[in-house]
């Protein structure tokens, strides 16, 4: 089955954290314990949005050792494709949902002498579970968390009171910026750097770290790419003998699923490689938006990641 083994859960609690963010708590439907997980893991939530099937990845923020339930936080994005709006508007306590097992593409390197964490906005969520994991099993950390303003700084107060000087907060509207260059220079050898936030922040942190002599292998980042919108296009699926039309707000993967094609997937964010699909013929341009294929592979055009990437042109034939 595509996407691996599933977990059947019930929404136990929905909490409005601030004007932008809601927190959801899921418990297993049969009352059994949910699997434990590792800090930085995410789950994929399956939604039936009035006939449109949406599968969105969300980082787990609860204690990885707490098997009584999972918690996620969702930032409402009115300009997005609709998953976060659906979570905010339609998901209420008592509702039944299907989620994936926890998956981790943003794990702590447990050999590290120290963990340096940089979060922007809703990017704080994977660090919440990682910090709880470090609380159980030991490990030094230092967190730098930047938000637009105090009102949307989710969980900042709790982090500060629990961890004191190890937590540093920055508010854009008060002109505060993470003093990154200085922070990077004073870290002991063997420190690993983790960053989660908007794309601009990721690029800034990775570039600054490289310039400061940090090896790429010591810098970890998680970027969930929303599939993004684009022009309507169609694709022929050679193996299943079907042709699908991909709508403006739909991904190629979603269009295949809607046509009843069992296509593999995991992260649905262009990162894990599971949905990699061979391109049989391409008369036009592949719009690669994934971070899985190498630049050389993207240029070669023999493969596409249908969870995020699109096509513009005359004919696209896929081996699916």
């Amino acid at each position: 089955m595509s996407g691996g083994a599933k977990l059947e859960v019930t929404v136990a609690e929905v909490v409005e954290v601030n004007a932008l963010i809601k927190r959801f708590r899921f418990v297993s439907r049969d009352g059994a314990a949910l699997p434990a997980f590792s800090g930085g893991s995410h789950i994929v939530v399956e939604m039936d949005d009035h006939g449109v099937r949406r599968l969105n990845p969300y980082s787990l923020m609860s204690d990885p050792a707490d098997t009584s339930g999972y918690e996620i936080s969702v930032r409402r994005d009115d300009a997005g494709r609709g998953g976060s709006v659906f979570m905010h508007s339609h998901v209420t306590p008592g509702m039944r949902l299907t989620i994936s097992h926890p998956l981790n593409f943003f794990a702590l390197d447990t050999r590290a002498k120290k963990h340096l964490m940089i979060a922007g906005g809703i990017g704080i969520t994977p660090f919440l579970s990682q910090i709880k994991q470090l609380g159980h099993f030991g490990g030094r950390f230092e967190l730098h968390y930047a938000t637009r303003n105090r009102d949307v700084a989710a969980y900042a107060t709790g982090l500060k009171s629990a961890h004191g000087d190890r937590v540093n907060l920055y508010y854009d509207d008060e002109g505060q910026v993470v003093p990154l260059a200085e922070v990077l220079t004073r870290q002991p050898i063997g420190t690993h750097l983790y960053v989660c936030g908007p794309k601009g922040m990721l690029n800034w942190v990775r570039k600054t770290a490289a310039a400061a002599g940090w090896p790429a292998q010591s810098v970890h980042f998680e970027e969930f790419l929303a599939p993004g919108t684009g022009l309507v296009f169609s694709a022929q699926l050679a193996r299943s003998g079907k042709t699908v039309t991909v709508g403006t707000h739909q991904s190629l993967l979603e269009a295949m699923e809607a046509a009843g094609v069992d296509a593999p997937y995991l992260c649905r964010g262009g990162a894990c490689g599971q949905c990699e699909t061979n391109v049989i013929r391409c008369d036009g341009t592949l719009l690669h938006r994934d971070v899985w294929l190498s630049p050389a592979e993207q240029a070669e055009g023999a493969k596409i990641m249908p969870c995020v990437s699109r096509f513009e042109g005359k004919t696209l034939v896929l081996d699916r």
Binding site: T185, Q187, I189, G213
Partner: peptide, 9 residues
């Protein structure tokens, strides 16, 4: 080695 900081080559 033990007393080095990140950024050391």
């Amino acid at each position: 080695v033990a007393e080095a900081h990140m950024g050391t080559q």
